[in-house]
Amino acid sequence: MPAQPDGSGLADLQHRFAHAVLQAPLAVPDGIRHDVRPTRERRFGVYRNNVKASLAAALAARFPVVERLVGDEFFTAMALVFIERHPPRSPVLAEYGTAFANFLEGFDPAADLPYLPDIARLEWSRHVAFHSADASAADIGRLAELPPEALGSVRLGLHPAMAVIASPWPIVSVWTTNTHDATPEAPAADWTGETALVTRPHLDVLVQRLPPGADLLVAELAQGVALSAAAEAASRTHDSFDLATALATLFGAGAITTLSQGSSS
């Protein structure tokens, strides 16, 4: 046991302390006074507990539908595994949880719920949208006012809060019923994949379904591709792509902020 925590002594102490806080088995690090009651195990346990319980609570607040889908006991236990493997790397807790969806992909006890990771992606996107930069959404009227010959080369700028999550599972339906309904609705027998659009045009975070192929349109627009070329790419890939519906959804949700003309990059 080091007698005096000098410069390096403090670093050693903090190293031992940090590891003991995060590890699953309770082990009190050396250097803590033990000639006092309550025991040092209980004393150290306050820090251990506070670190883990506060992070688990932050994750539960960030992923409320994942928690509802598995129940709070399961969620807390799962969160503790996540915290041990992926402790925060930033003192800004709003940034914690980016790895949660990928963690769920490989988490065997939750494998019976294959849509859980995509639900987590949707919830993470909502959280990111909440804290993202502000921007004014453009009205579709501005697009409709353009002369037809200008439409082909127009570029649509996407809102910084916007996110698209394409899933083979009906994630918008699952998210919606578990967010708004006292008793979640059972899904229809022919569950099909859904693509979620997350936006925050002002203060409210919005979630809705994107029509088929619209995610491809968004991906092209994000690359700076002009509207006509982006629409063609979406049509080529997706038979039932309908540009009018896609644009109405995107503008209606506040996903578009700017209209600009200019040569492709």
Binding site: V70, L113, W191
Partner: peptide
């Protein structure tokens, strides 16, 4: 831990 959340009622394809 066994899940006791709403998923227990959901049929998954």
């Amino acid at each position: 831990y066994v899940a006791k959340g709403s998923c227990a009622k959901m049929e998954v394809t």
